[in-house]
Amino acid sequence: MLPFWLILPTVAVLFTIQVYPALYTVWLSLQTREPQGWRFVGMDNFRRLSGMGVFGESIGHTIVFLVGYVSLTLVIGFFIALLLNRKLRFSGLYVTLLFIPWIIADIIVGIVFRLLVMPDYGLLSGILQNPALFPPNGLSVLTAVPPASWVGNFPFPPAPAMVYLIMAASWRALPFITLLLLAAMQTVPTEVVESSRIDGANGWQIVRRIMIPLMLPTLVVAIFSLTLSGMNGVGMVFSLTGGGPGSSTEVLSYMLYTLGWRQLEFGRAAALALLIAAVNWILIFATLRVTRVEERNN
């Protein structure tokens, strides 16, 4: 009986805080709030949500954000991991220093990056707002309107604020991804790398033909985990851009907040939460599958 009692508190907490609210969200998404209480409206919330113009816009912003965030973090993280993947006297020091951004809260990272480009007073705005460097009027990152879209309503090219948001988010996510990739890189047998070098492969060929294929499961896990954190991270949007200028950095996670807590549209917000949760679950199960396949191969 002992294991039962040891596990019971954990299961009770997880059920109350994770399972029950998830089911409750499903129920909420089928209701609407009225003065007398909740009323069942079926799929109405989903229909009205998809009818909202902001919803489509937010999906566009989220896709742009995710593509930029995931690819930027992955490429730079891979590069830093390559540099760290050798015997270095100070690698412990490098890893410690590189890890500091990861330990700083996302809301503070947002503020730190915001202070740099505050209109007129930010340290970098002296350079960015110089018309000679950024014609014709200089670049005010937090207030510049997004450029005209190239593809219908899709927000591409993104607003400067979105590019900056991606940079800030990547800056914070880099340490973890670097360490993840470094750990996978160290499992690539050195004999394979050495022998291919003797056979005349150059650095890029080794990365492309040997490292990337051997690290594929970890790369996939890294992509999924970045997508998951990018999809659900909202603190940085709060403190860095507040969704603006206009709605150019309003991603789905921030829209959930405005819909639920500003407009108090609980039913529709629950529908949106369910859609985000569905994406989350797909990512989580895909990750579980990949790691399990990897375990079986080992």
Binding site: Y20, A22, T25, N232, V234, S253, L256, A270, A277, I284
Partner: peptide, 12 residues
């Protein structure tokens, strides 16, 4: 892996 965000509404 479940993020806090999607449960917040129900928790609220």
């Amino acid at each position: 892996g479940v993020p806090l965000l999607t449960n917040l509404l129900a928790l609220y």
